[in-house]
C-alpha cells in the first residue's frame, strides 16, 4: 500500500490521540502512587515493614498480594510505591506480589470489574488468578538470596547498599521530632521528585504504546482469531498493546466478552494490569533488566496456562 501524506497525517493524529489518552489517564494514578510513596518514606521508619511482614517467603508474598487493598493504586502508581516499600525493607517477594497484584486486588478495580461483569465468575476469577499469579511470582523471587542483584542501586534498601534517598535533599524530616507540616512538605517533595523520575518512563512507555497501536491496529490483532488457544494470545497481546489503566480495563474487556472465550477475557484482565508497555518501561527504572524479563515472562506463562486451561477444561 503506497504511503500518502493523508495517510501519514491520519497516523500522526492516531498516534497523538493514543499517546495523550494513555498519558492523561495514567498521570493522576502515577501521582497518587508517588504521593503514597512519599507518605511511606516519611511516616515509616527503615525496618518497619520487615518487622510487620512474615518471615516465610510464601506468607510474605501472600501479604504483598493483598496489600493493594490498603494501597489502591493502578499499574502506574504501584511501581514507585513498590520501590519505596522495598527501600523501606519490605521483602522482595512481598514487593513483587504487591507490584503484580495491587493493580487488580484493590477496591477501585474490584468495583469497576463488578460494575462491568457483575458478581460472577469473571470477577472472582480475575481476583483469584491475579492474586495467585502475583503470589507465585513473588514466591519465585524469594529464591533470590541476594535481592539487590535484581534491583537498580536507587531501588535497593539502604541497608543493602541502596542510595540513602531518591534525589531529594531536604533535611531528614521523618524524625519523630519534625512538625507535621514539615513532614507533609517532604512527602510532596518526594512525590514531585519521584513523579518526574517515573514520569519519564511513563512518557516513553506511552509513546511506545501509541506507536505500536498506530502500526498494529486493534482490528488486525482481533482478526487473528477467537479460538480457545489463539484468543488467549490475541487478548494478552492486545492488553500489552493497549496499556489501559486497570481501573477501566474491565469495560474494554466487556466488549470482547461476547465474541472471545472466557479464558482470553480473563487473560486480558489479569495480565494487562501486571505487564504492559508503559509499566514495562517503568519496571526498567526499578529492576535490573534480567529481573524485568522474569517479571514479564513468568506472569505471561502463568496467565497463558490459566487462560488455556479455562478455555479447554472449564465450562461456564
Amino acid at each position: 500500500m503506497p504511503i500518502t501524506w493523508a495517510g501519514l497525517g491520519e497516523s500522526l493524529v492516531t498516534f497523538t490521540t493514543v499517546f495523550l489518552s494513555i498519558f492523561i489517564e495514567a498521570a493522576p494514578f502515577l501521582m497518587l502512587g508517588t504521593l503514597a510513596s512519599g507518605l511511606v518514606e516519611v511516616f515509616f521508619n527503615q525496618g518497619d515493614f520487615s518487622r510487620l511482614v512474615p518471615r516465610h517467603p510464601l506468607a510474605a508474598a501472600l501479604l504483598g498480594g493483598v496489600l493493594g487493598l490498603a494501597f489502591p493504586v493502578c499499574e502506574c502508581g504501584v511501581v514507585p510505591l513498590a520501590r519505596r516499600l522495598v527501600r523501606k525493607g519490605l521483602p522482595l517477594s512481598a514487593a513483587i506480589a504487591f507490584l503484580l497484584a495491587a493493580p487488580v486486588v484493590n477496591p477501585i478495580v474490584i468495583a469497576s470489574t463488578l460494575a462491568a461483569f457483575g458478581p460472577g465468575p469473571i470477577l472472582y476469577s480475575r481476583l483469584g488468578l491475579s492474586l495467585l499469579i502475583a503470589v507465585a511470582t513473588g514466591a519465585v523471587f524469594a529464591f533470590q538470596s541476594r535481592p539487590e542483584r535484581l534491583l537498580l542501586p536507587a531501588s535497593r534498601p539502604v541497608m543493602a547498599g541502596g542510595a540513602p534517598d531518591l534525589h531529594v535533599h531536604l533535611p531528614a524530616a521523618s524524625a519523630p521530632a519534625a512538625p507535621l507540616g514539615r513532614r507533609l512538605l517532604r512527602v510532596l517533595a518526594i512525590a514531585v521528585d519521584e513523579f518526574f523520575e517515573m514520569g519519564r518512563y511513563l512518557v516513553a512507555g506511552g509513546l511506545l504504546a501509541a506507536g505500536m497501536q498506530t502500526v498494529v491496529p486493534q482490528a488486525a490483532l482481533l482478526g487473528l482469531g477467537s479460538g480457545p488457544v489463539v484468543s488467549v494470545l490475541v487478548l494478552i497481546a492486545l492488553a500489552v498493546l493497549l496499556s489501559i489503566c486497570s481501573t477501566v480495563d474491565a469495560f474494554i474487556a466487556l466488549a470482547f466478552a461476547a465474541s472471545f472465550t472466557p479464558g482470553s477475557v480473563l487473560a486480558f484482565l489479569v495480565y494487562g494490569p501486571m505487564v504492559d508497555i508503559k509499566s514495562t518501561l517503568m519496571f526498567l527504572g526499578v529492576f535490573q533488566r534480567r529481573a524485568v524479563v522474569y517479571l514479564i515472562v513468568l506472569p505471561l506463562l502463568m496467565t497463558l496456562l490459566a487462560g488455556l486451561f479455562i478455555n479447554l477444561n472449564v465450562a461456564w
Binding site: L305, L312, A315
Partner: peptide, 11 residues
C-alpha cells in the same frame, strides 16, 4: 501449557 493444549478440548 503444552500438556494442556495437547490434552485437547474438553469443553
Amino acid at each position: 501449557i503444552t500438556g494442556v493444549v495437547l490434552a485437547g478440548d474438553h469443553v
